[in-house]
Amino acid sequence: MENDVLVVGGRAFTSRLFTGTGKFAADALIPKMLASSGSQMITVALRRIDSSARSENILDHIPRTVTLLPNTSGARNAEEAVRIARIARAAGCGDFIKIEVITDTKYLMPDNWETLKATEILAKEGFLVLPYVLPDLPLAKRLESAGAAAVMPLGAPIGSNRGLETASLIALLIENCRVPVVVDAGIGRPSHAAAAMEMGADAVLVNTAIATAQDPVAMGRAFSLAVAAGRTAFLARMAEESQVARASSPLTGFLNEDG
């Protein structure tokens, strides 16, 4: 397991748990959560300033050793996503970008078509693109060809905590994609994260389930353990299922047997 490194966009990560900075009751919890979870990649968002809001800089709460993954949330089409990505990079956030293009405000479903367009443009500009998408295999292959560094299919709607509702579609991506598959959105419990890793997902991205837990720091650790357990199980190759019982103890030499 020590040599089990995840490579995304040419960078190596020993943690397969990506986290987010949204919804924390206090930003000061973020570095504590990063320490407890061991997460090495974390998302941030870009917004217009709001004079009434706190002027704290979220980046001050993220240690330099953790890779920033700015997202393009708020973008409604490829052009807006591209613009946000360029601003984030120019502002010193590095080359990683999570493409998030959403027009549906009820379910926050990503617009796969616009996401593909943005990926094509940004990959050419040298961005390390992680597109957030509905799990659609032909689309994932197109994203791969367009130069995406990974694909990030959703398990369930953002913030819904419902788990891997799209499991069978994600499985197709895992089986057929050359780039890492990172399950993003919907993961509500450590067991969901473990299940995704058992399936062979390369990583998971968890925000709401950690940030809105009563103790986000402890929950960060719980997710870290679950991700490690699921990954280890995947590498250990799970035993087969059976429709009938298969005794674990020998079926011979019973004490009540007559000679």
Binding site: G22, V44, A45, L46, R47, N57, A91, I158, G159
Partner: peptide, 8 residues
């Protein structure tokens, strides 16, 4: 005039 904020 922009700033980075918490987001997932």
């Amino acid at each position: 005039l922009l700033r980075f904020v918490g987001g997932g």
